[in-house]
């Protein structure tokens, strides 16, 4: 871990200004992913801005009937919130499927969205990785890729986004609220928040330098059966091989997003429209352009079967 200076932010404005003023500053909240990466010198900030002092840790009703979730609301608190459990069960389920009790007690809503990939080559600084070191190449494509991406990938990167929570947020059409270093506020739909790797896999989100997430807003509840199904080798405390998040209405219509297959939560309007036609058709839509490797080809069938189980559960 490289040395860094440290400050506790006193306001959102001060935090964004400080971030803009340093060449390599990072906000730190829970720290559960950032510190992990700093120890390996995958992240090397020279200045840390502790944002835990900013408040931003409440969940409030919006005038539109939804919820505004403060950026610093801990994963465990968000999952346990009565309104979330009642109206956005998918979100609770996704959060509880992730990490461990200890990590969820620290990890925040914003930090969860900003998690970086768990690709083992990204994590090993001896190996080429375009995400870690642009232009160095991708070792994963012809390496060990069992848990990596199959769709929306590029010849530069086949990493996946590891978040469970983000899958639920995507299905629920959450909106990410930010404040820029110039004080400008933005509302970024979750669909646009994460980027595909293309030839710049090191740029993962739409956030600009110094911009900070202040909240994630959920639109008003959409009801339906809300199901999050995470598939993994061991029964807990593991990243998803794939996951399926869905909200299915009594008439069979609904929304679905898939995790563990792409650089971002994977959801397509056309696939949603096909939900009444069953898992096979939806999967073919979702994974139309899939280019799996020999190691992760199983994910295509796994998505279809898991989605089938989810739809059956929704019906049952």
């Amino acid at each position: 871990m490289k040395s860094f200076t440290y400050e506790r932010a006193t306001s959102v404005e001060a935090a964004t200004k400080a971030a803009a003023a340093h060449d390599a500053a990072r906000f730190i909240a829970g720290g559960t992913n950032l510190l992990d990466l700093m120890k390996l010198e995958i992240e090397t900030p020279t200045h840390l801005i502790d944002v835990n002092t900013l408040g931003l840790d409440t969940i409030e009703a919006t005038s539109e009937g939804g919820l505004r979730i403060g950026a610093l609301v801990r994963n465990s608190d968000l999952a346990a919130d009565e309104r979330v459990r009642r109206d956005y069960g998918l979100l609770s389920r996704a959060l509880l499927a992730g990490a461990s009790g200890q990590l969820r007690n620290k990890a925040t809503t914003a930090g969860n969205l900003l998690q970086r990939t768990r690709c083992p080559y990204f994590y090993d600084t001896n190996q080429p990785c375009n995400k870690r070191q642009p232009g160095s190449g991708c070792s994963a494509i012809d390496g060990f890729s069992r848990q990596l991406g199959i769709v929306g990938i590029s010849s530069s990167c086949i990493a996946t986004h590891p978040s469970d929570m983000a899958i639920a947020m995507r299905v629920l059409d959450a909106v990410v609220e930010t404040v820029g270093s110039d004080g400008a506020k933005r509302s970024i739909p979750i669909a646009d928040f994460h980027r595909l790797p293309g030839d710049t896999p090191h740029i993962e989100t739409e956030l600009k330098k110094g911009e900070i997430i202040t909240a994630v807003v959920l639109p008003k509840p959409i009801g339906g059966k809300q199901i999050y199904r995470k598939v993994r080798d061991r029964a807990s405390y593991a990243f998803a091989l794939i996951s399926v998040g869905a909200v299915i209405q009594p008439d069979g219509t609904g929304r679905v997003a898939v995790g563990g297959v792409a650089h971002k939560p994977w959801r397509l309007d056309a696939a949603d429209e096909d939900l009444p036609s069953g898992a096979g058709r939806v999967t073919r839509r979702l994974l139309l352009d899939a280019q799996p490797t020999e190691h992760n080809a199983y994910k295509v069938k796994l998505v279809e079967r898991t989605l089938g189980a989810v739809l059956a559960e929704a019906k049952g």
């Binding site: 768990r118 083992p120 994590y123 090993d124 390496g143 060990f144 061991r234 807990s236 405390y237 593991a238």
Partner: peptide
Amino acid sequence: VNHDLAGYEVPV
């Protein structure tokens, strides 16, 4: 490749 306790999965 999977040289840590997240990548090498022992039972929980």
